[in-house]
Design a protein around this nucleic acid. Structure first.
Length: 841
DNA sequence: AAGAGGTCCGTTTTT
DNA sequence: CGGACCTCTT
């Protein structure tokens, strides 16, 4: 085979087909279990699930709708393959996207097969399997198998250096942006020489390709890879070394892929290489079949990651890619009520280009509540009303753990958090900044990385002057120069430099001290428990002291995190093992013991379920998001709709959808229109709720009316009731939404922009909400329109003008700032609004 | 080497 | 508006 440096027994001892499995091995136990209780694991599966489990041969696509038992099918299928002796655990390749999914699958396969999961060495994420492959064959990619894995942060710092080294202005050409471009290319499986000419020119005056190549070159020198490389390198290796690929043909008898709709082009290529037998290169035993036994499980209706490279097309194309494939639809839903399923199906049916599934349930219960659509005045009221509903449910004995609020954008969370803090309601935020991304954790890890792998220049650079030890910019540059000239890692260069007169005495002493420390720690690496060593490193480097001496509010928390870091290292065998884990696994488990409402984005909700789900913010511009519309056009809208579908199908019993009439965006109040998705819900399954007694509704007074809750709402915005609408569908906002659907209203665009021509012209995303609606090229059109309208109306308003606002009523202009007006409304108080939303009276 | 002040920007997120 | 990031200052 490949002749990798660490020639580990590549194919396990159960590799070669043998008449009987090793005694006591997993397969043996599984087979024994099968004899005792014949195919017990198949019981309880419905016919489609069972077919998906038992159709082991040839390509299979399982279209698994939300809540149809997808994971169960996957794990049972593995169990079935093992139990029937079709393959040994090491001959099954099972890939997932997230570590969480991989963990869950391991756990559930373990139930069937016994504890010894190490028998499934090829069950993991695309990336973790990529690492495994690459460590074996590193030299074929010009790397050593000890390569380090860079995270996004390292990647950006590296790119920034390269951009500057090219003499480019790194403000004009941000490294972050270039990192995204590189990610995009790598998602498509493209190396520097393969990218499109246009793409190559799009960055840094045509230097895109050159920079990309320089970056790859630099990574090679650093013996490092980024996440994209974990897929790309194996693809290259498979392509360029048919002998290596052949080993894997022989090895993997069954391939299983989870969440196939989320695969990007590179992942597709990777799978394809492993799954498709080119003529003549296949192993003799299966030469006649064109494809290996590949089973992809996914749901085209839940493809919500197009923006980060996922190709829904992969799943849509499956039958063409794998002729003769068996396609199995799982449509029997075990999660949600008939009303929720009805709503979800009707909504998603508005998408074109889907494979088509309709979820159904066997057990409709006449008492089930319909999906509820609520209207709120603004986001504050929305949060307040949702909070009350949650408290009411809690009072009825529902656990907070069974409830979730799913938002489109994370800024929406704030209002809910504020509200829950006031109410004293437990909540947990899922997603957001993660443990391993915190500054102190990354600093500590950088120390460990240098100790474990002293050529890790990026890590060295990160902490060379943290804590401050007088090694500023000048010193670092000096080290860099030496390293470059002599072609050695920074640590080595530092060691050399510390022994010369080239540096001023003070930094020199400091540098020598640091270098000696690293040498000392390296010497201890194999001599003491790694957790102790880690502690010692943080102590002796002065890192812990740095935070102890920091009197800022967050310092104690950071020290706690460092302790937590050390604690979490205990589970690993060695420092190296721990670092490998951290590089790939960025998530940490939440405190499951606490009973709390979950708060997260719709994206992070995929795969979860809750009895009660709240979906706030169903307004045009927010959901569907304006940017998805502007940049993604029709397919952008469809992805938003799939996101809505994902949200709806998270609910088991109760689903509450909310929209507000006003939302504050970038500090400005803006009128909002109900989301078009609301119109796409079937009336038969939806109740439009008028909870006027709970919240103000449209123009209703709500000052201190709530029993047992003394003035919880602050000021009353209205002194007298205004018009009360019978349902949100008859509100002005709703009606306006209907109008807007068919016609692009020039009124909105034309009058709201005032004096902001240059901002709009420069592409300022002021077009965000309300503008450009219904137009794929909103921004451009708006820009043209604005340019005209401004010359026509040099100044539309002046301070003191009496104006009318569709939502806030009458008021007087108190101040003008460009197109932003501060208006004292008679009833609604002082608000800042865009001039396009008011008219003079 | 911290802090004031200025500028820019503003979905979604894994590995 | 508010956060992140950067620069220039003391």
């Amino acid at each position: 085979m490949s002749g990798s440096p660490d020639d580990l027994p590549f194919f396990g001892d159960e590799e070669a087909p043998r008449p009987t499995p090793r005694e006591g091995g997993i397969a043996a136990r599984a087979m024994a279990a099968r004899h005792q209780a014949p195919q017990q694991y198949l019981e309880g599966l419905n016919p489609e699930q069972r077919q998906a489990v038992e159709t082991t041969e040839g390509p299979v696509l399982v279209l698994a709708g939300a809540g149809t038992g997808k994971t169960r099918v996957l794990t049972t299928r593995i169990a079935h393959i093992l139990a029937t002796g079709r393959a040994y655990p090491s001959q099954i390749l099972a890939v997932t996207f997230t570590n969480k999914a991989a963990r869950e699958m391991k756990a559930r396969v373990g139930v069937f097969v016994g504890e010894a999961i190490e028998g499934m060495p090829w069950l993991g994420t695309f990336h973790s399997i990529g690492v495994k492959l690459l460590r074996r064959h590193a030299e074929l990619a010009g790397l050593k198998s000890s390569f380090t894995i860079l995270d996004t942060d390292d990647q950006i710092r590296l790119l920034k250096q390269l951009i500057q080294a090219q003499g480019l202005d790194d403000k004009r050409w941000p490294a972050r942006q270039f990192a995204q471009m590189i990610d995009g290319w790598k998602n498509k499986g493209l190396g520097p020489s393969e990218i499109q000419e246009g793409d190559a020119r799009a960055f840094a005056n045509g230097k895109g390709r050159e920079l990309y190549a320089a970056y790859q070159e630099r990574l090679k020198t650093l013996n490092a890879v980024d996440f994209g490389d974990l897929l790309l390198h194996p693809i290259r290796i498979f392509r360029d070394h048919p002998d290596v690929l052949r080993e894997y043909y022989r090895k993997f008898k069954y391939i299983l892929v989870d969440e196939y709709q989320d695969t990007n082009t590179a992942q597709y290529m990777w799978l394809r290489l492993l799954a498709q037998r080119s003529k003549g290169s296949a192993s003799s035993s299966r030469e006649d079949s064109a494809y290996i036994n590949i089973c992809c499980v996914g749901d085209d209706d839940q493809s919500i990651y197009g923006w980060r490279g996922a190709e829904v097309d992969n799943i849509l194309r499956f039958e063409k890619d794998f002729p003769g494939a068996t396609v199995i639809r799982l449509e029997r839903n075990y999660r949600s009520t008939a009303h929720i399923l009805g709503a979800a199906s009707h909504l998603i049916a508005h998408n074109e280009g889907r494979l088509g599934k309709t979820l159904f349930t066997d057990q409709p219960d006449p008492d089930e509540p319909k999906v509820k659509v609520h209207a709120a005045w603004d986001s504050e009221e929305e949060a307040r009303a949702v909070g009350e509903e949650i408290e009411a449910l809690q009072a009825k004995g529902h656990a907070l753990n069974d409830m979730a609020i799913l938002v489109r954008a994370s800024f929406q969370m704030r209002e809910f958090e504020d509200r829950f803090v006031t109410l004293g309601l437990n909540y947990r935020v899922i997603g957001g900044p993660r443990f391993y991304e915190r500054q102190e954790i990354r600093d500590a890890l950088a120390y460990f990385r240098v100790v474990a792998q002293n050529a890790d220049d990026l890590a060295f650079e990160r902490i060379v002057n943290v804590p401050k030890r007088g090694l500023g910019e000048a010193a670092v540059r000096q080290i860099h120069d030496v390293a470059r000239i002599r072609g050695v890692p920074l640590l080595q260069a530092a060691r050399d430099l510390a022994g010369t007169e080239e540096m001023k005495p003070k930094p020199r002493a400091s540098l020598r001290n640091l270098v000696e420390s690293f040498e000392r720690w390296q010497g201890l690496l194999d001599r003491m428990p790694h957790t102790e060593l880690a502690e010692q490193i943080l102590e002796e480097s002065g890192y812990t002291d740095m935070w102890k001496n920091d009197r800022s509010a967050e310092a104690p928390g950071r020290l706690d995190n460092l302790k937590e870091l050390i604690r979490s290292m205990e589970e690993y065998e060695s420092l190296r093992a721990f670092l490998e884990h951290v590089a790939l696994v960025m998530d940490t488990d939440q405190n499951a013991a606490l009973d709390a409402v979950s708060l997260m984005t719709l994206h992070s909700a995929k795969g979860l379920e809750f009895d009660t789900v709240f979906l706030p913010g169903w307004e045009e511009g927010l959901f569907p998001h304006q940017r998805a519309l502007d940049e993604g056009g029709r397919s952008g809208l469809e992805e938003e709709r799939r996101l809505a579908y994902v949200g709806v199908t998270r609910a088991k019993q109760n689903l509450h959808i909310w929209f507000t009439s006003n939302r504050r965006i970038y500090g400005l109040w803006q009128s909002t229109l109900p989301s078009r998705f609301l119109d796409e819900l079937p009336e038969a399954h939806v109740d439009v709720v008028e909870d006027g007694s709970v919240y103000g509704g449209y123009g209703q007074s709500y000052g201190g009316q709530q029993p047992g809750r003394p003035n919880p709402y602050g000021r009353s915005r209205f002194d007298e009731p205004g018009e009360v609408f019978s349902s949100p569908y008859s509100t002005p906002g709703w009606q306006r939404a209907q109008r807007n659907r068919s016609e692009a209203t020039a009124r909105n665009w034309g009058t709201r922009s005032g004096h902001q021509v240059e901002r709009v012209g420069y592409g300022e995303p002021d077009s965000g909400y309300g503008a450009g609606r219904g137009s794929v090229k909103g921004r451009t059109i708006e820009g043209e329109f604005v340019a005209k309208s401004v010359s026509d109306t040099p100044s539309a308003f002046k301070v003191g003008d009496r104006v009318f606002h569709l939502k806030f009523g009458n008021g007087n202009i108190a101040a003008i700032d460009g197109n932003k007006l501060t208006v004292d409304f008679d009833k609604a108080g002082q608000k800042r609004v865009l001039d396009g939303y008011v008219e003079r009276v």
